[in-house]
């Protein structure tokens, strides 16, 4: 069902936060705007719309990407997850708890993108998670409020808890 012929708008179908969805999308609309405007997923924050700030980071086919640097039409056939879907699934509850108890957020505008970036890092079983490595992993997510220290704390604590936790709970968390 790929839009093989040129057009200024296309019908797309994809899986969004576990649900099959359809939309008619202007070709020029980036995925961030599509998710916000057609699906009300306002947890996808637009901070720069040129791929630098990281606020719009979402998962596409399980990988973190910038929603502002993908076209909405390119979601066709993909599996897209936003912070709303990750929240509802409970998969990042431990990470959210760690952010909350350490106050690893202030205004909250970077937070969804930061959580998605951390989700990918924590899902990567091979990823080492020293403070320096965590800093490198989130180096593409701008936060003006916190100073990053507490964010690094929260991700490190979650990584450690998942590593030390019972095997089955870790698998659950990573699924």
């Amino acid at each position: 069902m790929a839009p093989e012929s040129p057009d200024r708008a296309h019908a797309v179908a994809f899986t969004l936060n576990g649900e099959a969805v359809r939309a008619h999308v202007p070709a020029r609309m980036h995925l961030g705007d599509l998710l916000r405007e057609s699906f009300g997923l306002t947890g996808v924050h637009l901070g720069c719309e040129h791929g630098v700030c990281g606020a719009c980071t979402i998962l596409v086919d399980g990988r973190a990407v910038r929603a502002c640097l993908m076209l909405g039409v390119q979601a066709d056939g993909a599996t897209v997850e936003t912070v709303e879907g990750l929240t509802e699934s409970g998969r990042i509850r431990d990470l959210q708890d760690a952010f909350h108890t350490r106050n690893a957020l202030q205004c909250g505008y970077c937070t969804p993108g930061m959580l998605v970036t951390a989700t990918e890092l924590l899902n990567d079983a091979d990823a080492a998670t020293s403070r320096e490595e965590i800093r490198a992993a989130i180096a593409g997510n701008y936060c003006r409020c916190t100073g990053y220290h507490a964010i690094v704390d929260a991700i490190a604590a979650t990584a450690e808890a998942r590593r030390d936790g019972p095997k089955n709970s870790r698998r659950e968390a990573a699924e």
Binding site: P3, E4, P6, D7, R8, H10, A27, R28, M29, E49
Partner: peptide, 10 residues
């Protein structure tokens, strides 16, 4: 900061 109108094919 929105892209200008264009056509798209895949």
């Amino acid at each position: 900061m929105k892209a200008p109108d264009f056509a798209y094919a895949r």
